[in-house]
């Protein structure tokens, strides 16, 4: 059971990394919009290609 003295601090380090990664993601604006992704998945699936080929890039 002495392995706990290694595993628990290791768990803390991983936790710290997770929190730092999450903070970075928040600061990077990835959590700024919590509403549209839910809609986007519906909209993207359903949208058709542009009818007028001149309009497309």
């Amino acid at each position: 059971m002495n392995i706990l003295f290694v595993l628990l601090p290791l768990g803390l380090v991983l936790l710290a990394i997770a929190v730092i990664a999450f903070f970075w993601a928040v600061g990077n604006g990835q959590y700024d919009d919590l509403d549209s992704p839910a809609w986007r998945i519906l909209l993207d699936d359903e949208s058709k290609p542009p009818k007028d080929p001149k309009d497309s890039p």
Binding site: L43, S47, P50, K51, D52
Partner: peptide, 9 residues
């Protein structure tokens, strides 16, 4: 015309 009618849905 741009195929984006889903906006209204």
């Amino acid at each position: 015309g741009a195929g984006l009618e889903d906006f209204y849905r």
